[in-house]
């Protein structure tokens, strides 16, 4: 048991500053527990979004000592407590209050993506048949808990605020899950190239690094999508073969 100094960013709509709190950290505590303790002891008006406390709802995303993390999955014992702990809100989204940001950009961007469009059913009873190996490629993406830590760390959104031209890693993962689905027949490549700005991604893998579900975002979602965009728009040989294939058929 030790008294630990927490420096929490407090304010409203971007205006504010750090406020320091001291609370006792006991064995097994996570950062969210400490924030709740601070709320209970000294700062009942401290705004923090949370829900499951089990790393599954993706609500308590924040920046702990400068690193985007889930507060409920960050053990206090893993931090250098003697130096104190800094907690800040996510920086890629409009600030609301204290540790809470407005993540509605993600919902709006998601709505623009063409939805799942399955092929005609394989069987007369309206069902489909899929092979496990075909489903596996996209299955990893289903683990996403929409914590938006990947969006927060992506410098295209965080530093350059390209929210109008770039949908960000989370929504590339979503697009990849749809594009790679063996039943899906929709074509999203033009949207990915033009509207969603996949070309802005410069593959620095920060999104993969911060993902609490360990989804290999860059290697398994973004780069394969980039390669599909290359097939469709930048590779003259692929275009030629597609043209020949169409003529043949």
């Amino acid at each position: 048991m030790a008294k630990v100094n927490f420096k929490i960013w407090r304010g409203e709509k971007g205006d504010g500053g750090y406020k320091e709190y001291t609370t006792e950290v006991t064995e097994g505590m996570v950062v969210l527990d400490a924030v709740h303790q601070i709320q209970a002891e000294t700062a009942p008006d401290l705004a923090v979004r949370w829900n499951c406390k089990a790393g599954k709802c993706g609500s308590c995303s924040a920046e702990i000592n400068g690193k985007p993390r889930l507060m409920c999955m960050t053990r206090c014992s893993d931090l250098p407590l003697h130096e104190g702990v800094t907690i800040e809100p996510m920086q890629a989204f409009p600030h609301l209050r204290d540790l809470v940001t407005d993540v509605s950009f993600n919902y709006r961007a998601k709505k623009q993506i063409k939805p799942f469009k399955p092929r005609k059913p394989d069987a007369p009873d309206g069902t489909w048949r899929m092979s496990q190996v075909d489903v596996e490629k996209a299955q990893e993406f289903r683990k996403c808990i929409e914590c938006y830590l990947c969006q927060n760390v992506c410098h295209v959104l965080r530093e350059h605020a390209k929210h109008d031209e770039f949908i960000g890693p989370r929504l590339f993962v979503y697009s990849a899950a749809l594009e790679m689905h063996p039943l899906d027949t929709e074509d999203r490549l033009k949207d990915l190239k033009d509207r969603d700005g996949i070309g802005y991604c410069n593959i620095t893998k920060c999104c993969t690094t911060v993902c609490p579900e360990h989804i290999t975002i860059t290697d398994n979602a973004i780069i394969p999508l980039k390669e599909r965009v290359v097939d469709a728009f930048y590779d003259p040989l692929a275009k030629l073969f597609r043209g020949l294939g169409k003529k043949k058929s």
Partner: peptide, 9 residues
């Protein structure tokens, strides 16, 4: 998109 970022360095 209008940004109201926390006043961090």
């Amino acid at each position: 998109m209008a940004q109201a970022k926390p006043g961090l360095a």
